[in-house]
Design a protein around this nucleic acid. Structure first.
Lengths: 320, 320
DNA sequence: GCCGCGTGAGAAAACCTTTTCTCACTTGAC
DNA sequence: GTCAAGTGAGAAAAGGTTTTCTCACGCGGC
């Protein structure tokens, strides 16, 4: 204890926290000695008293990290300035494991929990609705009266299709993932609104090979070919670009392609590099982090779903 | 406090922990009431007394998560059974940020720290050598007298090249990353030992386009072409496979290709799917986790570098 | 009938902070 | 010279748990 090294006991606390009444020279001396001996207050003891552990739990079922990592980076980024640390709990869709992690977090007196996933329209396999700590949902389905952050897929899709229209494309096809994904339906809806119904929507799976196959289907049909492809994610877009190259169709001269996700590793390595929609997941995480913090501190937060805008990342696959 | 609900104060503790002397019917009653009211001991208070927080810190500079995520999954997997939670601290090669995170972890009385990175031969930008908590290094360069876990890249490369030899390939080329990577040199060394010096090693960067370009170089040369490519990672392998396909060279009929990393997203989506070397990073994380735990509990652990064996994942890019 | 021992359960200290309360001493005013 | 006010600093409690210590009671043995 720093007090031992210096003078007293409770005086030390007041000196270090700039509280209480005391002579300025005493205060300075205590502070100096504290830094000299490298004193660090025990956060456990402090937390015991203040009921705040400066710790939050992050629950995710996204083992692969495609979506979680940027979200997490944002959360950490936002909270580190407030002295808050993050427990990472990967639960892999296992309800029992999830419960174990939640219990461990609660035991450790987390100030709040952020639940995140890999899909907007799925719940985590654990019920967080009646905890005595605040819960915020990020990129996963929340409960009634909760605060939920998600990307605005409709706006993102609109951004992409409007861009294609703006650069003069008229026959825009949409190759995307499984129709039971909420995001897929939202993006397809925006696509229809902006592009009209001149070209079909091809639903499939989230893989390069589907992108490849979808292009085969489109180009085998009679009639005019599309002059642009709006793809449901970057992997599909990449498969599509590869298929076009194999057919001798030039990207972006003959066909413009836009992806979704801005997954650097795919989008930037595609030839040509993909223009794509970024969901700004780091910003999403940042806001989620600040929101749990607000709730933990008792500041009021309006419940509901917050849709965060996407951003178009322009690379070379569009031309224009 | 459960005691209030039941009978006494310290008796409750003894009842729940199966310690002390007391009537079995009292013990049972306390336990029953505890579960009824959903009592959970406060880990902060417990940690304050026991000097064990059942918390460890994971420090990483791998923002992208390619290597860290499996390692982390392994750590979490190993420690969750022991009631240990993990603080994730992403530090992005920023020494100041790293120090902030380390300080926060120490304040929160972590029982130990695991440092992990994206490269075997680089240090994290923060000195962890004189902390009063145990430190274990995983997939990053450790300090003198520390415990360090790493993949055995030499053995992994040997596995790959021996496999190629076994299926009858004789002109095996090695396309890999920058020579200043320790892993690159180890893998190239093993390659030379097993394959001899009949084919060159092509050093480049960790990208698909380099794999693509390297194949161009190899096939433009006069003389016999390679009948197998051992690539330094899956991205290079993928670029190589794409280049071979464009040249009309059949994989695996004409040329066998092996990658490194078993990065599912690349290896499994390549056409044909890549045979590759898996570094077993999850197992590496698991062992690192158990090791900090051992150190935290005061059990002796031999310092030094532990090399963990890689495993060959056979898919379709090799034939044989 | 008395003493000692075993048994069950509570009291108290300790862990480390923060915060409130109290006390002693100084100083200024009348 | 006395009293009030003000100032500096320490004492003590609280937070929730574990552990050690103490105490009261009942029963068996002599």
């Amino acid at each position: 204890m720093a007090a031992a090294a210096a003078v007293s006991i409770s005086t030390a606390s007041k000196a270090l926290n700039d509280t209480g009444r005391m002579g300025s020279e005493t205060r300075e001396r205590v502070k100096r000695i504290a830094t000299e001996i490298g004193y660090r207050p025990n956060a456990l003891a402090r937390g015991l008293l203040s009921k705040r552990s400066f710790t939050i739990g992050l629950l995710t079922n996204d083992t692969y990290g495609r979506f979680t990592l940027p979200v997490m980076a944002g959360i950490s980024d936002a909270l580190v300035d407030h002295g808050v640390s993050v427990f990472l709990c990967a639960i892999e869709d296992d309800p029992a494991l999830a419960q174990i992690h939640v219990d461990a977090m609660l035991d450790k007196q987390v100030d709040g929990i952020i639940a995140t996933g890999k899909r907007l329209d799925r719940r985590l396999p654990v019920d967080l609705s009646n905890l005595h700590v605040p819960v915020v949902y990020a990129f996963t389905e929340g409960t009634q009266n909760s605060v939920t952050f998600r990307s605005d897929d409709e706006q993102g899709a609109r951004l992409a299709v409007e861009w294609l229209v703006k650069i003069g494309r008229r026959r825009i096809a949409h190759i995307t993932g499984p129709e039971d994904f909420f995001s897929v339906r939202e993006r397809a809806g925006a696509y229809h609104e902006v592009a009209g119904h001149r070209e079909p929507v091809l639903y499939g799976v989230w893989s390069e090979s589907w992108g490849h196959e979808a292009v085969e289907q489109l180009w085998k049909r009679s009639g005019e070919k599309p002059d642009a492809l709006f793809c449901g994610n970057d992997q599909i877009a990449r498969g599509a670009v590869d298929a076009l190259r194999e057919r001798g169709v030039k990207v972006p001269q003959d066909v413009s392609v836009i992806g979704f996700d801005n997954w650097e590793i795919v989008a930037a390595q595609t030839r040509p590099p993909l223009t794509t929609v970024d969901m700004e997941l780091k910003e999403l995480g940042r806001q989620a982090g600040l929101t749990v913090l607000a709730l933990a501190e008792g500041r009021p937060v309006e419940p509901g779903v917050r849709k965060l805008p996407c951003r178009l990342i322009v690379r070379q696959s569009c031309g224009g």
